[in-house]
Write a protein that binds this DNA or RNA. Sequence first.
DNA 1: CAACCCACCTGACTGC
DNA 2: TGCAGTCAGGTGGGTT
Length: 279
Amino acid sequence: MPELPEVETVRRGAAAHLPGRRLRSLTLRRPDLRWPMPAAALQALVGRRCRAVDRRSKYLLLAFDGDAEPVALVHLGMTGRLVVEVVTARAARPEYRRHEHWRMDFGDRLVRFVDPRRFGALDVAPAAALARHPLLRELGREPLEPGFDGAFLFAATRGRRSSIKANLMDSHLLVGVGNIYASEACWRARVRPRRAAGSLRRAECAALTAAVVAVLQAAIDAGGTSFRDYVGVHEDAGFFARELAVYEREGEPCRRCGGTIRRTVDGGRSTYWCAGCQA
DNA sequence: CAACCCACCTGACTGC
DNA sequence: TGCAGTCAGGTGGGTT
């Protein structure tokens, strides 16, 4: 569900509440999400103060103080929500919700992780070992950081026969772009999603990386795209859906050329594009 | 390696 | 009303 703009929106929401607050308790309501959760290592976070909420790819990184500077890794999977609630001092702890798999009690803030499909993840690692964490070490570039440009994409895709859309969604290359924004970026750059990645010229790679940056930034500015499950930390919807040019607009007119938006299925996932203005 | 396909899970929706 | 089938914003792991 969430791509980079949604995770970044959640990160900002959590960062407004958690840093400086001490973790009072952590409750795991089941032993696993996508993978087993390390109960003992997670309990060792209790009593520590949250230092910062960062993000790498689609992982939220809750950094804590103390020995080894432990960092909790949170992935939202397809349907995960990180809900932050302001709790008044004397109120009873709220009831668990359906699909609430863990919670962190920060005293006057309560963090709930709600995830019906359980494709999410929770792990913990020392800050110094983060770059070597199995879930992080293979990740490619951050599109909103320096080094993500046309020259990089051009070099990275030479000889590749798989589609450019699949390459945009390949986290070994770049992170954060999922099924919505891959289609959107291709539309902005006027590139057909099924083009072999290796066939793109330098100028097309430059246009495409610029399009990725622009669409991700615009979506962050709008608080993300809410279609089905995604909401921010206060369960507020993002409003980028109304700015989407192609995603879930099959049969509707292209806002640029008036052509009809088409949907194709690639690798089992829907791709949206305009045959009129994407070469 | 690159490229593909599957699995993991629940809920919403569609069509019979 | 019920039931089967389809689809959904991710991604690691296994196979060719």
